[in-house]
């Protein structure tokens, strides 16, 4: 087959990040996280463990939350990537960003970008009716987003400062939950 994309060295790719087409030249080993941080200078996404265990690098790809450290940038041509920078900015915060500020949903802040991107994806998954490990009956058609549900659905995001109670409160507030 056509091998035009194959290269032992560097590959030129185009990524759509936060609504903008970005051209960059990368070694195929470059993770999506490193492409965002080191090539595009979008340093909001954080590198915690770099092994998919902490969730600090969570971004949205085609609306789905993923860890950007366990995927290669070259695999994402044609995808829509949204980082924390694309959700909102000072003066125009995303409702989840505003809720994290209002509820003090962090201490050091290192996990916060990942927590917020993950929560955006998580609330969308719940709107689609997806069950979780905390759902008593996976066949249920209506699943209330209880505290236990939110904690389970957010278990891929660790907070070493253990700001979990306030993260939970922020997500409930932004999600319009009692």
């Amino acid at each position: 087959m056509a091998d035009k994309n194959a290269s032992a060295d560097h590959t030129r790719i185009e990524l759509e990040v936060n609504g903008h087409e970005q051209a960059l030249t990368v070694d195929p080993r470059t993770t999506l996280l490193d492409a965002l941080r080191e090539h595009l200078r979008l340093t909001g996404s954080k590198k915690g463990c770099d092994h998919g265990q902490c969730g600090a690098c969570t971004v949205l790809v085609n609306g789905m939350r993923i860890v950007s450290c366990l995927t290669f940038a070259v695999m994402h041509e044609g995808d829509e990537i949204t980082t924390i920078e694309g959700l909102g900015e000072p003066g125009q915060l995303h409702p989840l960003q505003a809720a994290f500020v209002a509820h003090d949903g962090f201490q050091c802040g290192y996990c916060t970008s990942g927590q917020i991107c993950s929560a955006v994806g998580m609330l969308d998954e719940h709107r689609k009716g997806w069950p979780s490990h905390a759902t008593p009956d996976v066949a249920a058609t209506a699943i209330a987003l209880s505290d236990a549900e939110i904690r389970e659905r957010m278990s891929g995001n660790l907070c070493r400062c253990a700001a979990y109670p306030n993260i939970l409160a922020a997500i409930k507030d932004a999600g319009g939950l009692p």
Partner: peptide, 8 residues
């Protein structure tokens, strides 16, 4: 796994 990993 986690929500992020199951999505991938």
């Amino acid at each position: 796994a986690s929500g992020q990993l199951r999505n991938k």
